[in-house]
Design a protein around this nucleic acid. Structure first.
Length: 111
DNA sequence: CTACTGACTTAAA
DNA sequence: GTTTAAGCCAGTA
């Protein structure tokens, strides 16, 4: 596994329950701007069961999967169990977006 | 080697 | 609201 993926996954692992981050946001925090597609790749290739992958949604606050997809339902359930509110298909990002403090990133990611 | 594919994003029309 | 188009880069064929 590449260092890029490791970094991405380590950022995702910091997202607390009932908060979400977008793919682009994760890419930015990992020091790889404009690499949102790599975030999805990294998540797909990860087998880590403790990774809170479900807390990553797209920039519109919507789940990235198609509504018919089994993973869509799974992710929706996981988020709702954590108390994330859906307004239709969208999450209120103003309320639920993860905004990590600088010390969180510095300390936990060894930047 | 080239070509295509994404659990994406942004800007522009 | 919508649809395009370009950008991104590790996998895959």
């Amino acid at each position: 596994m590449s260092e890029s993926y490791k970094k991405i996954l380590s950022v995702v692992s910091l997202i607390p329950a009932s908060y979400v981050a977008s793919y682009g946001q994760i890419a930015d925090l990992a020091g790889m701007p404009n690499c949102s597609r790599m975030v999805s790749k990294a998540l797909k290739s990860s087998n880590n069961k403790s990774l809170p992958w479900h807390r990553v949604v797209n920039s519109q606050g919507k789940i990235a999967f198609k509504p018919g997809d089994p993973l869509f339902v799974l992710q929706l359930n996981l988020l709702q169990e954590e108390g994330v509110e859906f307004k239709g298909k969208k999450i209120n990002l103003d309320k639920h977006r993860w905004q990590p403090s600088l010390d969180t990133l510095l300390y936990k990611l060894n930047y």
